[in-house]
């Protein structure tokens, strides 16, 4: 098979790293060669963050360049627009309807762009979901990242792996059940 490219973007602190770790473990269990790349450092201080996961028979480059992502999951609405140059024209885009205001918007210097989901939907295959609302409905807004992971897994047709046991390996025992529910809720949200 041709190598597939997944792009996860968001804001430092949103849990993209845990989500990508769980995903990578699952891909290894499914028998794929996997590479995952992320950027640490200053981006942890509330900046824009991205994680790239590549899987296939034999994966070479650890990262992707412009126009290479088969799917992008944006944990925050505006970040989808920031990284749009990385996706293929026929890519699937999953956007969390969740806004984190950058400094200039917080300070009232400019407005948060309102039309991003519409702008992207006009040209691309976009699914938007309220992962924060779904997570809150499950009793813990913090599992928003796993809801989005569920949507991604469904979007890439990877739902055949035993995600329940992978989650059990990757998260603390007291959060296993919550995260399993979150993953299923995310899968259901994009059906």
């Amino acid at each position: 098979m041709e190598t597939k490219n997944i792009l996860m973007v968001g804001v430092g602190g949103q849990g993209t790293i845990l989500a990508s770790k769980i995903l990578s473990e699952g891909l290894v269990e499914l028998g794929y060669d996997v590479k995952m790349s992320e950027i640490h450092g200053m981006s942890q201080r509330g900046g824009s963050v991205s994680t790239q996961i590549r899987y296939g028979k034999e994966v070479f480059a650890p990262t992707i360049g412009a126009g290479e992502a088969d799917i992008m999951v944006s944990f925050e609405t505006m970040e989808a627009a920031r990284y749009i140059g990385m996706v293929k024209p026929d890519a699937k885009i999953i956007i969390n309807r969740y806004r984190i205001f950058p400094p200039d918007v917080l300070a009232g210097e400019c407005d948060y762009p309102d039309t991003i989901i519409d702008d992207l939907s006009a040209k691309l295959d976009v699914i938007s979901l309220d992962a924060a609302g779904i997570a809150a409905g499950l009793g813990n807004p913090k599992c928003m990242n796993i809801v989005l992971l569920g949507a991604l897994i469904k979007g890439m047709g990877l739902d055949t792996a035993d995600w329940d046991s992978i989650i059990a390996k990757m998260v603390k025992p007291q959060f296993v059940e919550l995260n399993r529910k979150a993953l299923r809720a995310g899968m259901d949200a994009v059906e």
């Binding site: 804001v11 430092g12 200053m42 981006s43 942890q44 201080r45 509330g46 900046g47 824009s48 360049g65 412009a66 126009g67 290479e68 505006m78 970040e79 627009a81 920031r82 749009i84 140059g85 996706v87 293929k88 024209p89 890519a91 950058p102 400094p103 200039d104 918007v105 400019c110 948060y112 762009p113 039309t115 991003i116 702008d119 992207l120 006009a122 040209k123 691309l124």
Partner: peptide
């Protein structure tokens, strides 16, 4: 060679790192 890109017009506001 350059790969084809998604042709989308939209707006983005910068998100520089900030003191916590």
């Amino acid at each position: 060679e350059e790969l084809p890109l998604a042709e989308v017009k939209t707006t983005v506001v910068g998100r520089p790192p900030a003191l916590c």
